[in-house]
């Protein structure tokens, strides 16, 4: 299968990429291409101009800021998210999330920035980044803005990126608390039928000091389950009745209906995952 013809522009710097995007209406950025190339082949997307950002070394950097934020370049691959010691040490949930993505080959080529911009409702990173309160840095040739990942994703395959704008970095606050990140799929490399990212901190006397729970593959976009978070915070972990929280908190969800699973099935799987994962975290079981 061949994509439709397009003009190819190879950017050597962020400034050059932004210039290309500004000058060419209908242009699109290609990052790792692990989702975009199949879309080009099936002609779901037919951009007139592709701006390749694979040849920009600064987009592959990972830095730890003095305030504890991780600054992760858009072109950092899933392989690097797994292997990079700065990420693994300061946001281990993110490294664990990358381990769930697709397969070895695709993890070597696919990037965190590309995955976020694709905004697939079942994407692996999004629930985790939402639970971490991560932000993305968007640039045009004139301006820079930061947007929370939660606000960045508008719907299925829809983001707030405007013409001439490009995601250059992901800002991830350090978080070393106990966590679980899981996805359920028929085959491991498939997109999730349900996914959960959860971070729970307990005080010495067993009270829940922080709880963040996010889910993907349910609705048109991944989201935080704030009703659950609120119900857990401040409670002694031993006296939490999870079933009475999870049931009502997921009642209003209207999960996706596609070839991977129907709405009732997705909700059923999600409830089971939440109950097991939160049960583990509340009893203080360390991540595997």
């Amino acid at each position: 299968m061949y994509p439709k013809s397009f003009e190819y522009l190879r950017a050597k710097s962020v400034d050059q990429a932004l210039q290309y995007l500004k000058e060419n209406e209908g242009s699109r950025v290609i990052a790792g291409g692990q989702s975009l190339v199949p879309m080009l082949k099936s002609r779901l997307y037919q951009p007139t101009v592709l701006v390749d950002i694979n040849f920009i070394p600064e987009l592959r950097e990972v830095k730890l800021e003095s305030n504890g934020d991780l600054r992760i370049g858009a072109m950092v691959t899933h392989y690097d998210v797994i292997e990079n010691s700065i990420i693994r040490e300061n946001a281990p949930i993110l490294s664990s999330t990358a381990e769930n993505i697709a397969d070895v080959q695709i993890r070597n080529r696919g990037t965190i920035g590309g995955s976020i911009c694709e905004a697939d409702p079942s994407a692996d990173y999004l629930p985790t980044l939402m639970a971490l309160d991560a932000r993305v840095v968007l640039k045009t040739s004139e301006s820079t803005r930061e947007v929370k990942v939660e606000d960045f994703i508008q719907g299925p395959f829809e983001t707030v990126v405007e013409d001439g704008e490009m995601l250059v970095e992901v800002m991830v606050p350090s978080n070393k608390s106990n966590y679980r990140v899981e996805k359920y799929a028929r085959r491991k490399a498939d997109f999730a039928i349900a996914s959960v990212a959860a971070i729970v901190s307990l005080s010495k006397d067993g009270k829940v000091t922080d709880a963040r729970v996010a889910t993907g593959a349910q609705q048109d976009k991944p989201h935080r389950l704030r009703e659950i978070e609120t119900a857990l915070k401040g409670k002694p972990s031993k006296s939490v009745d999870l079933e009475s929280i999870i049931g009502p908190a997921t009642e209003e969800l209207e999960p996706l209906d596609d070839l991977h699973g129907g709405p009732e099935y997705r909700k059923y799987v999600l409830r089971g995952m939440l109950s097991r994962i939160l049960g583990d975290l509340l009893s203080g079981k360390e991540a595997r």
Partner: peptide
Amino acid sequence: DTGHCGACTILWDGKPVKSCQIL
């Protein structure tokens, strides 16, 4: 030709990638 089967796997700087998913 859709990125699933791996028959097109090559090593790129020593790491496996799927050559049908790259221009």
